[in-house]
Design a protein around this nucleic acid. Sequence first.
DNA 1: ACTGTCGATGTCAGTGACTGTCATCGACGC
DNA 2: GCGTCGATGACAGTCACTGACATCGACAGT
Lengths: 188, 188
Amino acid sequence: MSRWEPNARERLAKAALELYGERGYEQTTVAEIAKRAGLTERTFFRHYADKREVLFDGSSALQELFVNAVAEAPQSAAPIDAVAAGLEAVSTVFVGRHGHARRRHAVIVANAVLQERELIKLASLSAALADALRRRGVPEPAASLTAEAGVAVFKIGFERWVEAAEERTMAQFMRESLDELKAVTAGG
Amino acid sequence: MSRWEPNARERLAKAALELYGERGYEQTTVAEIAKRAGLTERTFFRHYADKREVLFDGSSALQELFVNAVAEAPQSAAPIDAVAAGLEAVSTVFVGRHGHARRRHAVIVANAVLQERELIKLASLSAALADALRRRGVPEPAASLTAEAGVAVFKIGFERWVEAAEERTMAQFMRESLDELKAVTAGG
DNA sequence: ACTGTCGATGTCAGTGACTGTCATCGACGC
DNA sequence: GCGTCGATGACAGTCACTGACATCGACAGT
């Protein structure tokens, strides 16, 4: 028998998402989140660096997945196609999570500081992708630009998937967005 | 004779950039910035919403310039070429500001919370550009993707310009980055 | 000149995010 | 049993940010 209930971290994340949804991010104090999770404010900050970070727990795993898929794409694949493989890989982890993603996204869209945090996560993803592309032999600035383009596709594909009904898969939205980007940058 | 020294806002921005550069962003308190500007902490917050915003005073003017250039590009121009016109317009305002841009950029790169603020400014720019493109008749998601692509080019072109010696103009970097993006998204 | 309004600033008290430090106490290996 | 360890609690402190009210030169109207 343990001294405390297990899964403190998960309880905090759940309580935070609930409270941010119920009364809004700014109207929620960290003390309230901790209380709902049966913990104290101090313990919250031992698990999460700040009040925003609690909404971004899975982001480093997602980044890792994306980067690995890019790294493992066939060497014959063009940079943009390696990124496309990453988009496919990432899409699989969202299967069955449409509801959760939607609730979380609604909270983030409602608060500028949360959007800032999301944007820096995407910037970190972009940097990691550029790195993976460079390891595939892609020179700069092509690596960084391909990475930025990939993140732009992910961002817009994700938004459209979240706002859509649940029937269509995320992968479909990603393919559509990528094709659209290719069309739009063609020529010149 | 005025009751106070004029240009309180500019004095605050100058003091903030200096102090952030001297001891770092986190090690600087708002009270110190206000004191160096000959004002009080409360007055700082009357001019700037928070400690970060003081570094982003010109950003709305820059956005306006970019958006207007896109809106005023010839109707015959493709979306990506309208954005290219915006990049040219924006480049002109940085002439002779390489030193200031460099100091400011160094401060921002050193602090995650400042990078977050910069990223949301770029996201705001992207949204405004997408809007301008839609007003030109560009449908979604092409408008948003073109806007994201344009911001990616701006971001990378700006970084390379800031890190380079002063001889080459920002416009040259922007053209190079845009060409590179086109090359990288070609095919498929 | 007299007076009232206005706008930029100062003063002060308060809230809440976040941190450093030390105490607590069950689990676990020995 | 005994000592260590790790997760948590308790508590005091700093600082970003806000609301409310006071101050006082400028300026317009009379």
